[in-house]
Design a protein around this nucleic acid. Structure first.
Length: 452
DNA sequence: TGGGGTTAT
DNA sequence: ATAACCC
């Protein structure tokens, strides 16, 4: 399989004929990061907004804003009240419906996939692309008769000089040229601006893309990678080290990148587990062997809504119906069929940080069949399933107070490509009622709602 | 903190 | 089913 080869070539450097002959194991990775993505989409929808300070609002938060607004002191995830106080002229648009953002997001990913199919999405506004193969091809084509062909595009981190005799420099330089072409294509074809970082792995490419901020790109050469990671003021700025790990590291007296580099590996493994410990300690040295994993189509679809209070079953049912209706439209567009449905809630709790509970079950096969077509036939039975999940989580005879409801479709399967005689035929749960009798029970640990 | 996503356990 | 991570 092509995917497996690409992954192995990327993640398992040494001894391996999978790595193209003559090349080192070193990769060329680009991280592409759109500028204030939601705000850009809104300005494309309504060009009159381009000249104004603009914020995108979800509930009482300004989740992102354009650079006009940033100049006037508005920050991402700022309270609407604070933002208006800072910037009374701020124009706000509601961004709770992600449909147009999601569509534009996939257009960007598809555009990048035309350069190289190995594109990994990170959220709606970031993509990694493994340019290693593309760079190799350009190197082969590049005969020494064009001297001006070897000039870097964009910034070089630390203004480090490029050594044209160093093959690693040359490869990264060509990566910077491809990155510039990608940004040009995004602007010409989609009207979007963004940043790019080019480096030898995902961590460094991501850090590099954030150096020069709107609509610029930066190349990181290997000799400067230590400078880059030590320019981080705190370990929490290291991608891959999140809120929880940061707290645990701080409890160990680790706060800077150098603290983490020099901390005892043995003790770190005991505290965080061998997997996390080894991974983040490598990150602290700027090492990241994780491959760019092609995202492909989404693994799940979900819709959620948060609110101050939901305390009755009827109220919950109405909200769930809304979420489900939107989801059915999306799943219909996608073409594949979800085989699992999940309901997620968040209970009110005065000061406790963030905890969600969920229940999931297989979608009854008779509902799955009707998914592609008439959307209204499936509403009622699906709501019934969801309300059973709801009552499984929430004791409706007791008072309750929810602040979020979410419905998720996952376990998506392409419809019936299984051919008789293939492995797939015997492993794929039937989508038609007539073939292959019996229960395909597998090891589904899901709650089967029919059992209740 | 919103309204999403992913992978690992 | 939850917990961690990312935006």
């Amino acid at each position: 399989m092509k995917r497996a080869e690409a992954g192995e070539a990327g993640s398992w450097p040494v001894h391996d004929q999978v790595v193209p002959a003559g090349s080192s194991s070193s990769r060329v990775i680009v991280h592409v990061d759109l500028d204030c993505f939601y705000a850009q989409v809104e300005m494309i929808s309504n060009p009159e907004l381009k000249s104004k300070p603009l914020g995108v609002q979800q509930k009482y938060l300004v989740v992102t804003c354009n650079y006009e607004a940033r100049k006037l002191g508005v920050k991402k995830l700022m309270n609407v009240r604070d933002a208006k106080e800072k910037c009374p002229q701020l124009v706000l648009v509601n961004g709770e419906d992600l449909t147009r953002y999601r569509e534009m997001s996939y257009k960007v990913t598809e555009l990048l996939e035309e350069f190289s199919p190995v594109v990994e999405r990170l959220g709606f506004d970031e993509n990694f692309v493994d340019l290693t193969e593309m760079v190799e091809k350009r190197l082969e084509q590049l005969q020494s008769d064009e001297p001006s062909a070897l000039t870097v595009s964009g910034h070089v981190y630390g203004n480090q000089p490029i050594n044209l005799h160093d093959i690693l420099h040359i490869r990264l330089l060509i990566g910077s040229q491809i990155a510039a072409e990608m940004r040009e294509a995004m602007y010409n074809q989609l009207g979007l601006t963004g940043c790019a970082g080019v480096a030898s792995n995902k961590l460094l490419a991501k850090l590099a893309s954030g150096i020069f901020k709107p609509n610029q790109q930066t190349l990181l050469l290997p000799e400067s990678s230590q400078d880059l990671i030590h320019s981080l003021n705190h370990i929490k700025e290291m991608p891959g080290i999140g809120y929880k790990t940061t707290k645990r590291l701080e409890a160990l007296g680790i706060s800077s990148v150098r603290d983490l580099q020099t901390f005892s590996s043995k003790i770190l493994e005991k505290e965080l587990g061998i997997s996390v410990a080894q991974r983040i300690q490598k990150l602290s040295f700027g090492e990241d062997n994780s491959p760019v994993t092609p995202s492909g189509p989404p693994q799940s679809f979900s819709e959620e809504d948060s609110f101050k209070k939901c305390s009755s079953e009827v109220e919950a049912k109405n909200k769930i119906e809304e979420l489900l209706a939107s989801l059915l439209n999306r799943v219909c567009q996608d073409g594949r069929k979800p085989h699992t449905i999940r309901l997620i809630i968040r209970r009110y709790s005065s000061e406790k940080h963030y905890s969600r509970e969920s229940r999931q079950c297989p979608i009854p096969s008779h509902i799955i069949q009707k998914l592609g077509i008439g959307n209204y036939d499936v509403m009622t039975p699906m709501v019934d399933v969801l309300m059973k999940l709801f009552r499984n989580m929430v004791n409706v005879k007791m008072p309750f107070h929810l602040t979020l409801l979410s419905v998720c479709f996952c376990n998506l399967k392409a419809l019936n490509t299984a051919k008789k005689g293939t492995i797939d035929y015997y492993l794929t749960p039937s989508l038609s009622t007539t073939s292959r009798s019996g229960k395909h029970s597998f090891k589904m640990k899901d709650t089967h709602m029919e059992d209740f």
